[in-house]
Each structure stands twice: as C-alpha cells, then as structure tokens.
Simulated scan of single mutants.
Amino acid sequence: MDNKPLILVIEDDKAIRNFISAALRTQGYKYIETENGEKGLTLIMSHNPDIIILDLGLPDMDGLRIIEKVRLWSNTPIIVVSARGQEREKVEALDLGADDYITKPFGISELLARLRVSLRHIYRHGSEQKACMSEFVLGDLKIDFEKRIVSLRNEEIHLTPIEYKILTLLSRHAGKVLTHNFILKEVWGSTIGNEAQSLRVFMASLRRKIEKEPAQPRYILTEVGVGYRMVDE
C-alpha cells in the first residue's frame, strides 16, 4: 500500500511548475499538476490531494477564489506561491483559509520545509482525532492542556487568561501563520475596537514570560504586517 502524500500543483508558469514538480519527484512525493483554476478544482474533488500548492495569478480565475471555494468543503492544507508580495494580499489569502504563503522568487528548500510543516499538521490532526491533544512540547516550553499549566524548563509560569488563550491558539496551529484578525476573532470574538492594540500588548507580555530574549523570539515569530506564527520544530 502506497502511503506517500499526494500534492496538487496549480501553477500557470510552466518553468516554475516544472521546477516544483522536479523537486517533489526528487523527494519521492506523488504529485499532479495543472495550469488553470477550473481544472485545479476538478482535480481537488476527484483526487482529494493531501496538500495544494497554489499560484494566485491564474489565467482563468483568481487563486483567492479557489481558496474560498475549497474552504467550503475541505480543510486540505493550501500553500500559496505567488508573485503578489503585498502584505494586504498575504493577509487576504490567509484570512480566506490558506495555510501558508511563499513569495516568488523562492528557494526550493524553503518550499520543501513548508511542505514538511503541512504534513506534520496532517499527521498531528489524524492522531488528535483518535486522542485529543493533551500537551504541546517545543524545546523547553510545555503546555499541559488538561491541567492548563504552562512550564518553561520544568518551572511553571503564570499566564493571564488572555495570554494563555493566545499561546494555546498559536500552539494548536504551530507552523501556521495566524493573521491578526484570526487571533482577534478567536481570543476576543471581535476585530472591532482596541483589541488590535491589546493583542500587541499581550503578545509583548507573553514573550517576556516565555522567551529568553523577547527581541529575538525562539517560540513565537512575527510575520510583519500579517500576524504571528508559533515555530513547529
């Protein structure tokens, strides 16, 4: 039985598509590819890929529309690969449901690293369905979800309820960029008012408690203008 993950590449630039496909083939991944959005949607429904690599600038439809359509019925990880490097477009893609965003030009080692993160999410989610995730461990940081205890180097640290909610939200999506709006909605239930400033304040406080050097964080990284990401390894 072949358990290798299947990756769908939706990219209209033939040179880039061949570049990605060659890298996937070298790494032993199974893959299918197409140059347009409509065919991509058909392949998603017919082949149920494990991961989708998606270009936004397709000839027949905007890649953002594909993200919207897929998220109506599937949680398949979507890695956007696009020449659109503006923060606004990154935020829009991530808010619509993309899992990651790589700006062209990019190195193949970066793409493969993002793929490995997405695959870990898939395997982690599968195990969580069998047994709910009870703890998160990353380096010296440990979160015991059942006891609601956060410890660093085996010493318990005190977090406020909001700090705990932010930390657990990031940890449950480790490796994935969470936009400011997503965090605000999940933690405060709203993106209206002073919550955006509150998020920055609570994040600074949280980092002072868990990071050895808050200005050079080890655990929670800032995606400038977009949001935050808990490292995954």
Score class of each variant (00 low, 15 high):
residue 4 K to F: 06
residue 10 I to C: 05
residue 14 K to R: 02
residue 15 A to I: 15
residue 15 A to E: 08
residue 20 I to N: 00
residue 25 R to G: 01
residue 30 K to T: 05
residue 31 Y to G: 04
residue 33 E to K: 02
residue 34 T to Y: 12
residue 34 T to I: 12
residue 35 E to R: 07
residue 41 L to R: 11
residue 42 T to D: 12
residue 43 L to S: 02
residue 44 I to Y: 00
residue 45 M to C: 03
residue 45 M to P: 00
residue 45 M to I: 08
residue 46 S to I: 14
residue 46 S to Q: 15
residue 55 D to R: 01
residue 55 D to L: 08
residue 60 D to C: 11
residue 62 D to Y: 08
residue 64 L to D: 04
residue 67 I to V: 15
residue 67 I to Y: 08
residue 68 E to K: 15
residue 69 K to M: 11
residue 73 W to D: 10
residue 75 N to K: 12
residue 76 T to K: 14
residue 79 I to G: 01
residue 84 R to L: 15
residue 86 Q to R: 05
residue 88 R to K: 13
residue 89 E to L: 03
residue 89 E to P: 07
residue 90 K to W: 01
residue 91 V to N: 00
residue 94 L to F: 11
residue 97 G to C: 07
residue 97 G to S: 05
residue 99 D to C: 08
residue 100 D to Y: 05
residue 102 I to N: 03
residue 104 K to N: 06
residue 106 F to Q: 03
residue 110 E to W: 00
residue 111 L to V: 00
residue 114 R to H: 06
residue 123 Y to V: 13
residue 125 H to M: 06
residue 125 H to K: 11
residue 125 H to S: 13
residue 126 G to I: 07
residue 128 E to D: 15
residue 128 E to R: 14
residue 132 C to R: 14
residue 138 L to Y: 06
residue 140 D to L: 02
residue 143 I to Q: 04
residue 143 I to S: 03
residue 144 D to N: 15
residue 144 D to Y: 09
residue 145 F to Q: 08
residue 145 F to Y: 15
residue 153 R to P: 00
residue 159 L to E: 10
residue 162 I to L: 13
residue 162 I to K: 14
residue 162 I to G: 14
residue 164 Y to L: 12
residue 164 Y to E: 14
residue 168 T to N: 01
residue 170 L to S: 01
residue 170 L to R: 05
residue 172 R to C: 09
residue 173 H to T: 04
residue 176 K to C: 04
residue 178 L to Y: 04
residue 178 L to W: 07
residue 181 N to H: 12
residue 182 F to K: 14
residue 186 E to Q: 15
residue 190 S to P: 02
residue 191 T to C: 10
residue 193 G to R: 03
residue 194 N to A: 14
residue 196 A to G: 07
residue 197 Q to W: 09
residue 198 S to V: 05
residue 198 S to E: 13
residue 207 R to E: 06
residue 209 K to W: 05
residue 211 E to N: 02
residue 212 K to I: 01
residue 212 K to C: 00
residue 213 E to T: 11
residue 215 A to T: 14
residue 217 P to S: 06
residue 218 R to Q: 05
residue 219 Y to G: 02
residue 221 L to V: 05
residue 223 E to P: 01
residue 224 V to W: 10
residue 224 V to Q: 12
residue 224 V to E: 09
residue 225 G to R: 00
residue 227 G to P: 10
residue 227 G to M: 06
residue 230 M to A: 05
residue 232 D to Q: 05
residue 232 D to F: 06
